[in-house]
């Protein structure tokens, strides 16, 4: 029973991370139809920068913000400098973002080396505590991570559903040309949304580097999870990202605990099942 609870909590932790990573990926895809293959690299950049900032200043909060901002800036540069010029040609954008992710990963390997880093935790988040009712001990940082993902999800929902900027993004998802004909410079909005997606990825990177660790390959791990999460949950839907992250995170941890050498198969089976039943994803809108 304790094992089951711990595994469930681990699954939720992973789901929280996957949601943080996938929400930016999904947001960008929803508005621009861009499959940003450099999303994992942006996440890893945030993680590394966050690590370096925490290492230098000792402030975890500063690290999260700094990592987020670094990835936001990198995302904005990627969109404004390369992908924006190929808007509408999705295959070209995909290939270009792959090239960018290869270059970014290699340059990060150059600068930070092949070591595995873990961001040092502030005192409040270090250690763990016995959870009431459930009666199991669990690490503070992992609990904080779940709270962080929840808060981010709510903030994102508020931003998109309740603010003017969010209304502009939704209008852009519905009909880009019409939004332009109403005086909105769509390219600038694209850059902003790319920065926002990068910000989410970068903060996820720092949090991932705190709760788990970060090393070359982290980018691929989170790119895969983001892909599967949005395929399962539905492309371009934040709620879908949350649901997909929950399913994938839990499946992965149960798989690891109960069938160690076939863990990935669970994730994969969920994806195939969803594709067979609902090709647009659980909460995705059907489109042609």
């Amino acid at each position: 029973m304790t094992l089951f609870l711990i595994v469930t909590l681990n699954g939720l932790t992973l789901a929280a991370l996957y949601f943080l990573a996938a929400s930016g990926f999904s947001l960008i895809f929803g508005l621009m139809r861009t499959v940003n293959m450099a999303h994992g690299a942006l996440l890893m950049l945030g993680g590394y920068v966050g690590y370096s900032i925490v290492d230098a200043t000792g402030s975890w909060g500063l690290g999260v913000v700094g990592g987020g901002l670094a990835a936001a800036l990198a995302g904005a540069i990627v969109q404004a400098g390369v992908l924006g010029w190929m808007q509408g040609d999705e295959l070209r954008q995909t290939l270009a973002s792959i090239a960018i992710s290869i270059i970014m990963a290699d340059l990060m390997l150059w600068h930070w080396g092949g070591l595995t880093y873990q961001v040092e935790l502030p005192e409040a988040l270090a250690g763990g505590q016995r959870l009431p009712v459930l009666g199991v001990g669990y690490a503070n940082i992992r609990l904080a991570l779940m709270a962080f993902a929840l808060a981010t999800g709510l903030a994102l929902w508020f931003l998109i559903q309740r603010t003017r900027f969010g209304a502009v993004i939704r209008a852009g998802v519905d009909d880009q040309d019409m939004l332009r004909a109403l005086g909105y410079p769509i390219n600038r909005i694209f850059v902003l949304v790319f920065a926002l997606g990068g910000m989410l990825a970068g903060m996820a990177g720092v949090v991932a580097a705190s709760a788990l660790s970060i090393a070359p390959g982290t980018d691929l791990q989170f790119l895969l999870s983001s892909l599967v999460v949005v395929i399962v949950g539905g492309m371009g839907s934040i709620g879908g990202a949350a649901l997909g992250a929950l399913l994938v995170g839990l499946a992965e941890q149960y798989g690891l605990a109960y069938a160690p050498t076939y863990g990935v198969v669970f994730t994969f089976a969920i994806m195939v099942l969803v594709l067979a039943v609902r090709p647009q994803g659980l909460l995705g809108k059907a489109e042609l």
């Binding site: 003017r164 209008a171 519905d174």
Partner: peptide, 10 residues
């Protein structure tokens, strides 16, 4: 071409 996911007010 009204936006399907925006309210009238938005």
């Amino acid at each position: 071409r009204v936006f399907r996911s925006l309210t009238v007010e938005e």
